[in-house]
Amino acid sequence: MPSTRITNQIRLLRFMAGEMTQAELGERIGMTRQTVAAIEAGKYSPTLEAAFRIAQVFGKPLDEVFQWQG
């Protein structure tokens, strides 16, 4: 699957959240480490529910976590 038009700040937000690892984030949102890595790399677009869960982990609005480049 080619890279999506949705970018994200997850890597930065993880660093700012006490250097949270991909595995730790994955555990909190019910995803594998590899899926979190794929999301960060723009290779996989999460479902809306998953995107909201990620934003909730960081305490940020959805559009501060994900941006549409269309």
Binding site: A23, G26, G30, M31, T32, T35, P46, T47, A50
Partner: peptide
């Protein structure tokens, strides 16, 4: 083992 115990996620 940790990866094996994890359930299938939405991407899987």
């Amino acid at each position: 083992p940790a990866d094996a115990r994890a359930p299938r996620d939405e991407r899987d």
